[in-house]
Design a binder for these strands. Structure first.
Lengths: 199, 199
DNA sequence: TTTTCATGTAAGCAGGCACTTACATTAGCG
DNA sequence: CGCTAATGTAAGTGCCTGCTTACATGAAAA
């Protein structure tokens, strides 16, 4: 008997359906059916719909690979480094698309602990990036008169909004070649700004 | 008898409750109560919950004041102009906060015509800003090798994300003085970039 | 004054929901 | 084989939801 399997399949089904229909729109019947089990099995495992959802959130790890990535950036130019970070960030979001969608749409309506997961993720990303930018600043590669914190925020905002507009809003999804081109364009603007200096 | 009043109050109550609890979480009973009428009156006016929601969306105008604003920008430096645009944009979002919240969270779950309203709004903002940046580019005030379309997107993404993180996620809301300071910081980075050129 | 029209009161219906109870089945393990 | 533990079948409970029906009220328009 594969006890673990059932629970796992239920959690996956929950993730899928809630990301598609929202917490209130996803019924326990449908979740169970999607997982290939009876509704009763769902309740035997989790007790209630809310506990199921909380366990889904709790079981979730965003494993910010950003930190692991930073040592690899040493030999690269800051432009190359930011491109690499951006690409990895976007791919992580794409992989976790369903959960990202949930956190995005349920944040305001389902206050209890979804906020914790979300805030933790955002905060970790921000501080990691801010630390990286602070390093660049110390090396003289970043303007002295801007704050690493705001720099980090704007970097992530642009990437996240790009992800949302491409992946969540459009059904098509991002094509890799197009994505890389646009990442390059975004990072170019992010680094060099928009103002014309050639005079 | 104030026929118009009742309908208007119902629409306002719908806006408020759906923005707080989502479409599925807001009940017709509660909406009617919030509007100070009987549930029956709600159904006499709108026939069904879905029609009520659609009428809310249809009745809604985002009146993009961006277009009206553009003539006023003539004497200003591009930095001042962008700051003015940004401030107005953020204030519009704040005024329409409830509807913005709805479009944000219900977009993927309530597909039918909420997308139209949202897409129309986004598209209008983007094209207006892109046209403005194209003008700047012709005047030689914007780098030649970046696309006005992407520039416009990034500009709006940063502002929108800022709004979301300040206004929607935190309960406190934006304080005007802090907002102005941060807008200046964001536009500085947006215009001058992040890279250190002083060598 | 009589009519009309927006609203209210009250009761309820049918369906879906989360969740439960009682009992049967199946498969692996000692 | 017999025991245990996970799952299934089936029926149902109580609650809430969107929505309806029948009748009453009250104020403005005729």
């Amino acid at each position: 008997m594969k006890k673990t399997d059932t629970k796992k399949r239920l959690l996956e089904a929950t993730l899928k359906l809630i990301s598609e229909k929202g917490y209130m729109g996803a019924t326990t019947r449908e979740i169970a059916q999607q997982a290939g089990v009876t509704e009763l099995t769902l309740f035997r495992h989790f007790g209630s719909k809310e506990k199921l959802f909380k366990e889904l959130l709790g079981s979730y790890t965003f494993l910010p690979r950003l930190k692991e990535l930073i040592p690899e950036l040493d030999g690269l130019s800051s432009r190359e480094a930011l491109e690499l970070i951006a690409t990895h960030f976007l791919l992580t979001l794409k992989e976790r698309k369903a959960m990202v969608k949930i956190m995005y749409s349920e944040y305001t309506t389902y206050p209890e602990n979804i906020r914790e997961v979300y805030n933790k993720f955002i905060l970790e990303m921000r501080t990691t990036m801010a630390a990286y930018f602070e390093g660049l600043q110390r090396q003289g590669m970043l303007r002295k008169n801007i704050s690493p914190a705001m720099t980090a925020k704007m970097f992530l905002w642009v990437l996240f909004s790009y992800f949302r507009s491409e992946e969540i809003m459009q059904s098509t999804g991002m094509k890799k070649s197009i994505m890389e081109k646009q990442v390059r364009e975004m990072i170019d603007i992010f680094m060099s700004g928009t103002v014309n200096n050639n005079t």
